[in-house]
Amino acid sequence: MSPVLLDEDVTVRRITTVQFLHVCLMGLRRHRLAFYYLRQAVSMVQMLRIDDASAIMASAGSFEQARRERLYWEVFVHERFYSISEQRTVLLLPLTRLPDLDDRFPYSVHHGFVQIIRLFLLIDSDFLAKWFATFHGVQDVTPDWIRAKHAEIDAESAGNDEEVTGLSEMQQADLVITKHWLRMLVWQIAMSKCLLSSEASERHMSLLFPVRISARLRELLTDISKQAIEVHGSGIQQKLFELTDTIGNVILTVPAASLEETRQRVGDFKFLYELWVSLPRPNTLQKELLQSKLEKLDVPVG
């Protein structure tokens, strides 16, 4: 890829190329270099002033406006995910509107893309500040905020049964895993501030919330093929690892009320572990971490 020349305009194709390199490097776990290309994509998106629809319309028309807005949202989603994974600040603000339906694409492609955007819009600046505080401990978090954020996720219909109807397995896998990953992030924020209790009547404020997530995930993912999950690459693998790892911690820490409940918990955890480890090139350290949890639960590891 050649450098941007003095008389060269930034193009959608160039930004897409840089974004593609970012995704590839994330898959290779070269996270620092991936960050370099992500910031290139963000900078180029800002150079095109995609957040100024009137400027695009004046120079390019409605087709180019729609294309550039889709590109903006694509980079927006990846920047939010990288920010959560690597504790980096974000630069892109949400556009004032979601992408319009384009008749040149199947409706399911448009609909699934919009649902993913809606989920990542929940990771706003306040959410990020509180997430960063789980590592640095400088942000106050109240039970009311935790309840409100869970309510936002629950109210967001993206990923629900009625929303994924008509979408491909690939889209369903992305939406289902991403929505439960968001729920787990909020639970982890609450956990870091000691706001949870095993006696809590509200499921979102319970130490056992991840156990409920594991049962629901198993139910939802049983009928989705492994190929539909692995096609998403390292991003979906990381989300699944974080979900499975947190669920394992809870099972090991909070005793079950009965032997049958213990079997159910361990069965759900083993299902998620076997799904995760079956995906291409699982991270060696992460695999060893999950295997150690299985061994502590006295579950044979194949």
Rank of each mutant, 00 (worst) to 15 (best):
E8I: 05
F20K: 13
C24V: 14
C24D: 05
L25G: 02
G27C: 09
R29W: 11
A53T: 04
I56Y: 02
M57D: 03
S62D: 12
E64F: 13
R67F: 06
R70P: 02
V75Y: 04
E86M: 07
Q87G: 00
Q87E: 07
P94H: 02
P94W: 03
L95D: 05
D103I: 13
H111W: 01
F113R: 03
F113M: 01
V114C: 09
Q115N: 13
R118N: 13
R118F: 05
I123F: 13
I123L: 15
K130Q: 12
K130T: 04
T134H: 00
G137P: 01
V141L: 10
T142M: 01
E152P: 00
D154K: 13
E156S: 11
A158V: 06
E163T: 09
G166P: 01
S168E: 08
L175Y: 07
W181I: 02
M184Q: 10
W187G: 04
Q188L: 08
K193T: 12
S197A: 13
A200L: 07
H204N: 14
L208I: 07
R218C: 08
E219D: 14
L220T: 00
L221T: 02
Q237W: 02
Q238R: 14
T246G: 05
P255Q: 13
A256N: 15
A256R: 13
A256W: 04
E261F: 00
V266S: 06
F269Q: 06
F271R: 10
F271A: 11
Y273Q: 07
Y273W: 08
N283V: 06
Q286C: 05
S292P: 01
G302W: 08
